[in-house]
């Protein structure tokens, strides 16, 4: 449980814009405008120690960009990120920075691109242990790497092989083992189990929960699998076009979703009961983050949109232990109802 003290991770007014314009000369010749992707457009998140905070939302809404900003892989266009009181943008001495880096690790969405193809798996996993001087010698290093491989259901003898000799899911587990190697306190996990079958996925998620309980780990978790998010998260943030539209404790979010986009998202969950129910895809065309709609960016797809929604960006307002950014909820013209789920037994 969160210990209620100062927030471990504090994100304020975070923005990241990418310039994706054609080269200057082409623009001039063809009379094309500049193009800026507003990948992350002003978000606030607080994560307590020992908590799992999940981000969900449509493909392209900015989840991976938030993850990369948090671990310092991109500098923000605006806003602040603090981790355990350390401002990520402030100048740190090299040793402070190394200490901070050891305390947080990231599991990348793309397990193929994130493993060095020329290194043996043993060295890939041993690298953080060596870099941070965590092992007392060769035998200890071998024991640690072996234990990490076993934790992710691979075999210590697999350390001799190269990444290309593994299947997609096996590579994903190698990157999980590497992320755990430096004994981090804070893990940013971007779709960590997307390439795994449900049983291995359950083993890895159970492992993550065990580690969290034992070592008070904090997770920022990204997944499009809402059932996984439901099981692993303390709180969930719903993103739409670079903004957070709703944040709520997990049970509340799934039982009493408030924002119209959250409601639509929950309607799209696949039907395993095979009742023949058609999933309703979220209606309307997904707008582009290059020219986002005015006001509430969800208004072109929202059945409850009115003139105010087109003009004014809704603020995040506290409600039932979370926050929601929606005029209809604020004005009380959209009732909040309980949802039930068919259980697949």
């Amino acid at each position: 449980m969160p210990d209620g003290g100062a927030d471990f991770v504090r994100i304020e007014g975070l923005k990241r814009h990418f310039d994706v314009s054609a080269p200057w000369l082409v623009r001039k010749l063809e009379g094309r405008p500049r193009q800026i992707v507003q990948a992350v457009d002003g978000i606030d998140i607080e994560i307590a120690k020992g908590e799992t905070f999940s981000l969900v939302g449509e493909s392209g809404c900015g989840k991976s960009t938030v993850a990369r900003l948090v671990v310092g892989l991109y500098p923000p266009t605006a806003g602040r990120i603090q981790i355990d009181g350390n401002d990520m943008a402030a100048r740190h001495s090299r040793s402070d920075m190394a200490a901070l880096r050891r305390r947080m690790q990231m599991i990348f969405q793309d397990p193929f691109a994130s493993l060095n193809p020329r290194w043996r798996v043993f060295d890939i996993i041993a690298e953080p242990i060596r870099a941070f001087g965590l092992s007392s010698g060769k035998a200890d290093l071998e024991a640690r790497v072996g234990a990490l491989l076993r934790q992710v259901k691979l075999n210590p003898a697999d350390g001799r092989k190269y990444p290309h000799e593994f299947s997609g899911g096996q590579r994903q587990r190698i990157s999980i083992a590497r992320a755990l190697a430096s004994e981090p306190e804070f893990l940013v996990c971007d779709e960590p189990t997307s390439a795994l079958d449900v049983s291995v996925q359950a083993q890895i998620l159970n492992l993550m929960v065990d580690l969290q309980r034992r070592l008070q780990l904090t997770y920022l978790f990204i997944s499009h699998n809402l059932a996984v998010v439901y099981h692993i998260s303390t709180r969930v943030g719903v993103m739409y076009l670079g903004r957070l539209v709703e944040v709520a404790p997990t049970d509340t979010l799934f039982r009493r979703p408030k924002h119209p986009y959250t409601r639509m998202l929950l309607d799209t969950i696949p039907d395993l009961e095979m009742t023949g129910r058609q999933r309703s895809p979220v209606g309307g065309e997904v707008p582009s983050p290059i020219n986002p709609p005015s006001g509430c960016t969800f208004h072109p797809r929202c059945p409850f949109a009115n003139d105010r929604c087109k003009a004014e960006r809704p603020k995040a307002l506290p409600i039932e232990g979370g926050t929601v950014a929606c005029h209809a909820i604020e004005e009380g013209r959209l009732p909040i109802e309980d949802r039930t789920y068919a259980l697949n037994t």
Binding site: V198, N206, A227, L272, N344
Partner: peptide
């Protein structure tokens, strides 16, 4: 092993 919605269990 498929996680389901509706019942939160301690372990999957």
């Amino acid at each position: 092993s498929i996680p389901s919605l509706g019942v939160r269990t301690d372990r999957l």
